[in-house]
Amino acid sequence: MLLIACPWCGPRDEAEFHYGGQAHVAHPDDPAALSDEEWARYLFFRDNPKGLFAERWSHAAGCRRWFNAVRDTATNEIHAVYRVGEPRPVNS
């Protein structure tokens, strides 16, 4: 079980969190302006890297805040956590 450092609460067991998939996939500002393919890419396509991955987590059984984490999908090591709206840290 991962030990995840919630940016608001500090390190907590993974069981308190809810996973939210890839981070930085914003809902398009004007979906009507997108082609079917562009909209389908937003709906259905996500990265699946082996290595560093910026992803969303929610501290569902804690402060209920969403935040982002950069996790190495091959080792499960979390390299950075940061709040919604903050840019992905450069070195992670």
């Binding site: 809902h27 398009p28 004007d30 009507a32 997108l34 079917d36 389908a40 709906l43």
Partner: peptide, 13 residues
């Protein structure tokens, strides 16, 4: 409404 969650999908084939 200009938009709501899901609206664009009703224009999908």
């Amino acid at each position: 409404k200009a938009d709501f969650v899901g609206r664009r999908s009703y224009a999908r084939a």
